[in-house]
Write a protein that binds this DNA or RNA. Structure first.
Lengths: 129, 129
DNA sequence: ATAATATATTCAAATTTACGAATATGAAAA
DNA sequence: TTTTCATATTCGTAAATTTGAATATATTAT
């Protein structure tokens, strides 16, 4: 393998950082957390327009940070590598935030007000069992 | 302490990430490494114009990432927190770079071709001792 | 003082990025 | 097959960022 210049290396290192560095993308990654989230879930969690969220999701996909999976009409996103969250918590620590003020935001649970398939899974009618 | 929204938290987390995410700033931070570097050293290490480097240094100062110290006509910069380098190496790993290809670039040594006070310290004449 | 050296700042043009609006696609339901 | 629902994409413009050029400042040497 040929030796690369500091400029080339830095260029490559910057790709994940640049993709993550926008506050909107950080919010999305936190909202997805260690699990999966569909776009409609993110709409509820963040309160933003659908198209706007999709645009940021596209950027995160192109930077190989997110992975998508279609299931019926829903598309679920998850992190390709959970370490991206570590990057975020590391930056949180450097900006003086307490670890817990971040961890409480990382999505691990369902939102009662959200009607997406995860938060409000369809119940199997008792009479069909 | 009042609970902050995911949007506010993300905004705060993004500050260090945004300041670091430009490839030029990554290169500067790697060139400074765990030690100190004056601007003229960075000129040699990176081969860029002086004013251009100063502009990026200014951005890194404003984001509280770098700290400066004047000594005569030289100004030496160093990281306020060595963990910023960890952020960079973490991102390097996530972008598929081998740890060593980064670590060999982190400045720990003098450049023979550089004439800055660190690389070419003024020798104390023997006859003055 | 004046000159020389190291670094900082300002400004404007060029480039990039963000964001809203509109619209397209793909899957399931009717 | 038409409609509906979830999501994606395109496009134009506004806004932010980058970068080169010019210049200013601070410190030391003469």
């Amino acid at each position: 393998m040929k030796k690369q210049s500091i400029t080339q290396i830095s260029e490559q290192i910057s790709v994940p950082l640049a993709a993550i560095s926008a506050p909107q993308r950080i919010a999305i990654l936190l909202a997805i957390g260690t699990g999966e989230a569909c776009v409609c879930h993110l709409e509820t969690a963040l309160g933003w327009r659908q198209a706007y969220i999709s645009q940021h999701l596209m950027a995160l996909r192109k930077a190989d940070i997110l992975q998508d999976r279609r299931e019926g009409r829903y598309v679920f996103y998850k992190l390709r590598n959970a370490s991206f969250l570590d990057l975020i918590t590391a930056s949180a620590a450097l900006s003086g935030l307490a670890a817990e003020s971040v961890s409480t935001l990382v999505n691990t649970r369902a939102y009662p007000s959200c009607e997406c398939p995860q938060c409000a899974p369809v119940l199997i009618p008792a009479n069909s069992l």
